[in-house]
Amino acid sequence: MLKIGCHLSSSKGYLAMGKEAVKIGANTFQFFTRNPRGGKAKPLDLEDMAAYRAFAQEHGLFPILAHAPYTLNACAADEGLRTFARETMADDLARLENIPGSLYNFHPGSHVKQGAETGIALIAEHLNAILTPEQSTTVLLETMAGKGSEVGRSFEEIRAILDRVELSDKLGVCLDTCHVSDGGYDIVNDLDGVLEKFDKVIGLGRLMAVHLNDSMNPLGSHKDRHQKLGEGTLGLEALTRIINHPALRELPFYLETPNDLAGYAREIAMMKEAYQG
């Protein structure tokens, strides 16, 4: 069975997200832990979380993927911004312990002219400060398109972060199809080759989730502009190969395409139809 969902609004709580996911045919979903531009999270609603856990068990809604706010920059040049990122992520992970076994995805950050090596060292320092042996949530580094001074634009940069983190067993990778294509990895014409390189550099055992997006821009553009499935430069044929690839087909897929709920429902149904098995 294809494990697929989309990005939902967390404003109404976990149970509401779960019901919304089921309504559109999803069997997992992604959400922001708080306003995507940062700020304080809403107070915990433990009753809502308990109700969601029961609903999720009944409907097989797992694993869900929490997404850190876009504004967090673990390798910012400003120490105050790094502290904000560290405190926010630590709070997010503490909250997620109420939904055991969740995934938590974040953009590694931008080194802001400090250089990639400094950025990598700061991100690893950030993760060493917040990861704990007892946490049940797996933290995912997202593959990035490489715009500006983004860290994580190559498999090698992701690997370099993993190598510097003490509790690296708490870490995985989320592969974004738009990002890796924009970053120069030809998943349309050489999916096997890209995955072989991922395995050699990072290890496919680290791959925990896929952001399934088409791209508005060509291979290697470093732009990061998502498109609806089948309407971009990747195309439906390539995306169908991705969800059916032996190394990927058992992973959860999360849509971040420019859609409303009806659009997400169409894409989920389309991918379920294309899934073999």
Rank of each mutant, 00 (worst) to 15 (best):
Tyr52Trp: 11
Thr83Ile: 10
Ser10Tyr: 11
Arg82Pro: 06
Ala56Trp: 05
Lys23Ala: 15
Asn73Met: 02
His67Met: 09
Asp48Ala: 13
His59Pro: 05
Thr88Asn: 13
Ile64Pro: 01
Gly80Tyr: 14
Gln30Leu: 13
Ala26Ser: 12
Ala41Ser: 12
Asn35His: 14
Pro63Glu: 02
Ala85Leu: 01
Gly60Ile: 09
Ala76Cys: 08
Thr83Phe: 10
Leu15Arg: 03
Leu65Gln: 02
Arg53Phe: 08
Ala66Tyr: 01
Arg53Ala: 14
Ala77Trp: 00
Asn27Arg: 08
Phe31Arg: 08
Thr33Lys: 02
Asn73Asp: 02
Glu79Ala: 15
Thr71Ala: 07
Ala56Thr: 08
Ala76Phe: 09
Phe29Ile: 02
Phe55Val: 05
Phe29Pro: 11
Pro69Lys: 04
Glu20Ala: 15
Ala76Gly: 04
Gly39Thr: 07
Asn35Pro: 11
Ala74Leu: 07
Leu81Met: 13
Leu72Gln: 04
Ile24Val: 14
Gly25Phe: 07
Arg86Pro: 01
Phe55His: 11
Gly13Gln: 07
Glu47His: 04
Leu44Tyr: 00
Arg53Asp: 07
Phe32Gly: 12
Glu20Leu: 11
Asn35Thr: 04
Pro69Met: 01
Glu87Val: 10
Gly60His: 08
Asn27Pro: 02
Ala85Tyr: 06
Glu20Ser: 14
Glu87Leu: 10
Tyr14Leu: 12
Phe84Gly: 00
Ile64Tyr: 05
Cys75Thr: 01
Pro36Trp: 12
Glu79Ile: 09
Ile64Ser: 03
Asp48Tyr: 12
Ala16Glu: 15
His67Cys: 09
Gly13Ile: 06
Leu8Thr: 06
Leu46Met: 10
Ala54Val: 14
Lys19Gln: 15
Ala56Gln: 06
Leu65Lys: 03
Ala54Pro: 03
Phe29Ala: 05
Gln30Pro: 01
Thr88Trp: 06
Phe32Met: 12
